[in-house]
Amino acid sequence: MSTPTTMTDETEDWNTRHRAEGPLNRADRNFAELLQELRVVFTGVQVLFGFLLTMSVSERFKELDDFQHGMFVTTLAGAAATSTLLVAPVAAHRFLFRRNRKRELVRAGHCLAMAGLGFLALTLAAGLMLVLDIAVGRVASIIGVTVLLSGTLVLWVLVPLGLRRDSCAAPVLSDPAP
């Protein structure tokens, strides 16, 4: 009678067979992939953060009402939090460098990146709310943000979860039939 294996064990076996990749090589590859993903996201967050910083010293900033000021502060704080979360895996890597903790770093980096993406969604929504409120009014801004958050939920959460569920149901970890 065989003992049940975990998905991690099966994935490790699959990586070893099909990629000739051991657990540490896989952790190195996963961390490199994570850093590449963070580079893509971080650039946009930094552009948004820089724009917000310059907006606060513009003449038009004084014309914002209390709600718009609140949205500005929310967007600025969200961009700062997003930046902090997205850079955290790099900072953690510096602290853990040459300490043989790459697998833990990948797990923690994944969690930090997911939190950063959550804050990014909220930051984008707050920024859109602010700009649309100024440009076309409060009702239109609420509709715009609702559409954005709905699309984000579908594209960032539901589609990946659907793909993950489909991949779990398929026999991807076994060798193909001859």
Rank of each mutant, 00 (worst) to 15 (best):
L149T: 07
G118K: 08
I143F: 06
T5W: 00
A91I: 13
L34S: 08
L149P: 02
S141D: 04
C168R: 15
G70A: 02
R103N: 10
T43S: 10
V145I: 09
E37F: 09
R98K: 13
R101F: 00
D65Q: 05
G118T: 11
D133V: 02
A80F: 09
S56Q: 10
M129Q: 07
G162L: 12
Q36K: 13
V73K: 02
T152F: 12
R103A: 15
A170F: 11
K102P: 02
P89M: 06
L64Y: 04
E37L: 12
G109W: 03
G127K: 04
M55S: 08
R26K: 11
R99N: 08
Q46K: 07
G109I: 05
L53V: 13
A91L: 14
R94K: 09
R98W: 05
E104N: 13
V154H: 03
T11P: 08
N100E: 14
A115L: 15
S141Q: 06
A91T: 12
T5H: 07
V157I: 15
G151E: 04
A88Y: 02
M55H: 04
T3F: 06
L132N: 05
L153A: 14
L148M: 08
M1T: 03
R165F: 15
T5D: 07
G151Y: 02
M7L: 15
T43W: 00
L24W: 03
F119V: 05
R164G: 13
V41I: 10
R39T: 09
E63K: 06
T54W: 00
E63H: 07
L161C: 13
K102I: 12
F97H: 14
V147W: 03
E59N: 10
E10S: 15
P23S: 11
L35R: 14
V154R: 03
R101C: 04
V147E: 07
V57T: 14
R60K: 11
L64A: 04
G109L: 03
T146D: 08
H18R: 10
L105Y: 06
F61A: 07
S83D: 04
T6E: 01
G116S: 08
V172H: 12
L86H: 06
E21K: 11
V154F: 09
